[in-house]
Write a protein that binds this DNA or RNA. Structure first.
Lengths: 237, 237
DNA sequence: GGTCGTAGTTGAACACGTTCAAGAAGGGCG
DNA sequence: CGCCCTTCTTGAACGTGTTCAACTACGACC
């Protein structure tokens, strides 16, 4: 078997502060994760075996498991990549303040747009993410960084909104919107319509709907029900 | 290995109408599914291997696959069992007409109650059901019978409700409530609180909430938004 | 009774994710 | 240089779900 020789790169300051990785280890880690991400994109989740990843990266199977506890953890890297792209795509649109409905639609739509190329892939690995104890679950500790980033994005959506919103609702809104996007993603994964046009329709039409509901929250009549929903949400979180 | 000899039972009318199974085949099929259901309940999904099922049933692994295309299809049988129990538990409560809120709470609560013993099990096999193409998905063709039965139950919940409901909403309500129960189940699977008390809380408090929203649907002010939601739902179904 | 076709049954074999005992590499220290 | 410790790497091995070619049992038909 042909083995690529990896030279030790530039000599590095030895683990300055809390550095848990040497230059060599980090290089192998990247090599593996890059190869995995590439193969996932090319062939989907199930078709991309750990043996194939290891072979393509020029390392042994065991070596991949030295850096990643499971195949699922390799997907986490893939997921992070996609999410970074989503955040980037949103930045421009969310730069200037504007109506809540536009910002919400933009955030959700670019999300669907960014994920689009990976629809098949997402379908095949979704089961892993849906498992309760899985590190890939959006609610898991392992997903905390990705979740935080996404939440910050929705906080930005709310902060830059010129629409008037009930203050109590406004505080919880980013989290609720993130949850809504999880719902959209759930629908998207199961959406078999060509180009996932149904999911686009869902976003296109639920954004104004959410906007209307949020707008209504300011009126006194709805205060009790809004409070009830928020209280329940806090209890269940 | 000890092998139970299976006598051909009572001689049977040969495949009267559309009968696709002989007596012997049906017996083996039942033997396998009963064994599988028992082991699933005793040890959970992952711990119960196909080899263990086959061994406990006194057949070969290949024989199990002759009757069931995959391990997941064996769970379908388990799921059906639980759902039957749920329907039975509801029948008594739903016999006499009453307020919508009571009927809804009862239906959902008995659902949680019926599933309770299998929480651990459900968690481990949930990933299989969540997969888009899976026959175990509640939206799949294979799940059609179970889905129909559940829908009929929620239709009963609505039909026997003495509460006044917007007719247009009333027509779609059973399906929406079924969807809501899917949501509750989704939460339940991920609920790690002792005895899944949080899920009970969710049902306990969301039933009056849904009731209130349904009640509000009759007022003219909300007609546009109700219609919008229903239209969107029909488009996405 | 014999023959044939279908239904039923078997267990070895495959590919997969994952584990693990063993070893190699490399650098710091006396 | 020699020793040791940590980091990194290996590939065989395990247990899993699933497949498949071969075999058996059995009822129907001539």
């Amino acid at each position: 078997m042909v083995r690529t020789v990896v030279e030790p790169a530039i000599s590095e300051a030895p683990a300055a502060a809390g550095g848990e990785s040497t230059a060599k280890g980090e290089q192998t880690r990247r090599l593996i994760v890059d190869t995995a991400v590439r193969l996932f994109g090319e062939q989907g989740y199930d078709k991309t075996t750990m043996r194939a990843i290891a072979a393509a990266a020029g390392v042994s199977v065991g070596n991949a498991y030295y850096y990643f506890p499971s195949k699922g953890h390799l997907v986490q890297a893939f997921y992070t990549t996609v999410q970074d792209a989503h955040a980037d795509a949103c930045r421009q649109v969310l730069a200037a303040p504007g109506p809540f409905v536009d910002r919400l639609r933009a955030a959700m739509l670019t999300g669907v747009e960014t994920m689009a190329p990976y629809h098949g892939f997402a379908g095949s690995f979704f089961k892993t993410a849906a498992e309760p104890g899985s590190p890939l679950s959006p609610f898991s500790a392992d997903s905390a960084p990705a979740r935080e980033r996404s939440l910050r994005m929705f906080a930005d959506v709310v902060d830059g909104a010129t629409t008037k919103i009930d203050p109590e609702l406004r505080a919880e809104l980013p989290e609720l919107l993130w949850l809504a996007q999880m719902g959209v993603t759930l629908y998207w994964v199961h959406d078999t319509s060509p180009g996932q046009e149904k999911t686009r329709l869902l976003v296109e039409r639920s954004a104004p709907l959410i906007d209307r509901l949020v707008g209504m929250s300011r009126y006194r009549v709805f205060r009790p029900v809004v409070r009830e929903v928020l209280t329940l949400y806090r209890l269940l979180r």
